[in-house]
Simulated scan of single mutants.
Amino acid sequence: MPFALALTIVLALLAVFQIALAFGAPIGQFAWGGAHRVLPTRLRVGSAVSIVIYTLIAVVAWSRVGVIDAIPEIVAHVAHVAMWVIFAYFALGILMNAVSRSKPERFVMVPVATVLAALSFLIAMGYGELATPI
């Protein structure tokens, strides 16, 4: 459970960051390739969509560790498989942020993506589960 909590905290902090980007904060050099100080409309929409994705990731993580039962019993293995997909998503995020042309994005987001990948890996492996591992 502590890994799901840590993942949720990091995702919540990222959500605040994405909200700021979506509302036009001049911190675009830390996201979306770092090409814009203030994001254009299409990337602001992307930031808003990111918040929804972060929420879904947190629900899957809490489901995987057995704290909430957001996924029906019939497809109980969905949370297990989904956490592996989430791990792959964050692992790819490490690479994508590492090749960014934006030095601030590389400096900040590579460590963030690494933490998210590590936490999602531990959750996918079943560490911190309340229920019997799948």
Rank of each mutant, 00 (worst) to 15 (best):
M96W: 09
T132S: 08
I57N: 04
M109D: 02
A15S: 15
G66K: 04
A118R: 01
T55E: 03
Q18M: 15
N97D: 11
F87K: 03
P133T: 07
K103R: 13
I134E: 00
T132Y: 08
G34M: 06
T41K: 09
A70Y: 06
V99Y: 10
P133D: 03
T55Y: 14
G28I: 08
L13R: 02
G93W: 08
A35F: 05
D69M: 09
V49H: 00
L56W: 14
Y54I: 00
A15L: 01
W62Q: 03
M1L: 06
L7M: 10
F3Q: 13
A124I: 09
F23R: 08
A70D: 05
L13Y: 09
D69I: 00
V49S: 05
T41R: 12
P26A: 14
V112E: 14
A88Y: 05
P40F: 05
A76T: 13
H77T: 11
P40H: 07
T114A: 15
A98T: 06
G66R: 02
V10I: 15
L21G: 12
M109R: 13
A12R: 03
G34Y: 00
I134V: 11
Q18D: 14
A118P: 00
A98K: 06
I86F: 01
L7Y: 08
S120V: 04
V10K: 07
A61E: 08
K103Y: 03
M109Q: 15
E73K: 14
M83N: 03
L11M: 11
P111N: 10
V59I: 15
V67N: 02
R44D: 11
Y127N: 10
A20M: 13
I123H: 06
Y127R: 12
A6E: 05
D69F: 08
V16H: 01
I123V: 11
V45Y: 14
L5K: 09
A91K: 07
T55V: 12
V52K: 10
V49C: 04
L5F: 11
M1H: 09
A98V: 07
R42M: 01
S63N: 15
W32Q: 14
P104I: 03
A12D: 02
Y127D: 02
F17Q: 06
A22H: 10
T132C: 00
V85L: 15
G93K: 12
A76S: 12
F121P: 00
F121Q: 00
L56N: 14
L130K: 05
F23D: 00
V10H: 06
S102P: 12
A113W: 09
S47G: 15
L130P: 00
A61N: 09
I86N: 02
V108S: 14
P111V: 01
I123R: 08
G66M: 07
A4L: 11
E129G: 05
V59E: 10
A98E: 08
E129V: 01
A70G: 14
